[in-house]
C-alpha cells in the first residue's frame, strides 16, 4: 500500500513584500450550508441553538465562540462555515451540531486560500479587486463573492489589514500569479 502525502493547492506559498505579505492558508475547513426550500427558519434556529448566533445576512459574517466556525453570508439561502481543520470530517462536524436542518457540502479541498496582510494590503488588492475595500465600506468581517482577473473569488476581511481570498483550486496558480503581480506592481 503506497503512502500518499497531502499537498496543498499552492505548496504552502509565502512571500513578503514591503509592509505586505502573501501566505497560503492550509489549515481551514470549509462547508457550504444551504437551507432547504421553505425551511429557512428551521436552519436559523438550529444555528442559534447550536452556536448561539444568528445566521449572518448576505455580505457579512459572524463568528461563534473561539474554536467554533465562522459563518459567511454569501447569498440568500446559503452560507459557508469556515473553521480549523480537524481529524473528523468537516461535514460530520457541522452535521453533529445542526443535524439535518440544512444541506451540507464539504468544499475544503476545492478552494485555495490566500491571506494578504500588512498595511499595504489594500493597495495591492485595489488593482485587481472590483469592490470598494475602504474600511468604512468593507468593514472587518465583511465578505463578498466577486471576480479578480476573470477568476471567481470569495474575499473576506478578517482584520483591519488582513484579507482572506478563496479561489478555485483548479486555477489556483493563475490566481496566485495575479495576486503576486499586483503586489509587485506597488513596490
Amino acid at each position: 500500500m503506497p503512502r500518499l502525502a497531502p499537498s496543498s493547492p499552492l505548496n504552502g506559498f509565502r512571500q513578503e513584500f514591503d509592509r505586505l505579505e502573501i501566505t497560503e492558508i492550509t489549515d481551514l475547513a470549509l462547508v457550504s450550508i444551504a437551507s432547504p426550500q421553505g425551511r429557512e427558519a428551521e436552519l436559523a434556529s438550529a444555528v442559534s441553538g447550536a452556536y448561539g448566533i444568528a445566521l449572518p445576512p448576505v455580505g457579512s459574517s459572524v463568528e461563534a465562540d473561539a474554536g467554533e466556525p465562522r459563518f459567511l453570508g454569501l447569498q440568500p439561502g446559503q452560507c459557508f462555515a469556515l473553521f480549523e481543520r480537524q481529524d473528523e470530517g468537516p461535514v460530520d462536524i457541522i452535521a453533529r451540531k445542526l443535524s439535518d436542518a440544512g444541506y451540507y457540502t464539504d468544499q475544503s479541498d476545492s478552494w485555495a486560500v490566500l491571506r494578504v496582510s500588512g498595511t499595504r494590503c489594500r493597495e495591492a488588492l485595489e488593482r485587481i479587486c472590483p469592490l470598494d475595500l475602504h474600511p468604512q465600506t468593507f468593514v472587518t468581517g465583511a465578505v463578498a463573492r466577486t471576480v479578480m482577473e476573470h477568476l471567481g473569488v470569495i474575499i473576506f476581511r478578517d482584520g483591519e489589514d488582513s484579507f482572506l481570498l478563496l479561489s478555485a483550486r483548479s486555477s489556483a496558480p493563475s490566481f496566485l500569479h495575479a495576486v503576486v503581480t499586483s503586489a509587485k506592481n506597488i513596490q
Partner: peptide
C-alpha cells in the same frame, strides 16, 4: 438590492 453597486462584468 442586497449587495450594493457591483460592476456589470460580474453579471
Amino acid at each position: 438590492p442586497l449587495l450594493g453597486p457591483r460592476d456589470a462584468s460580474e453579471f
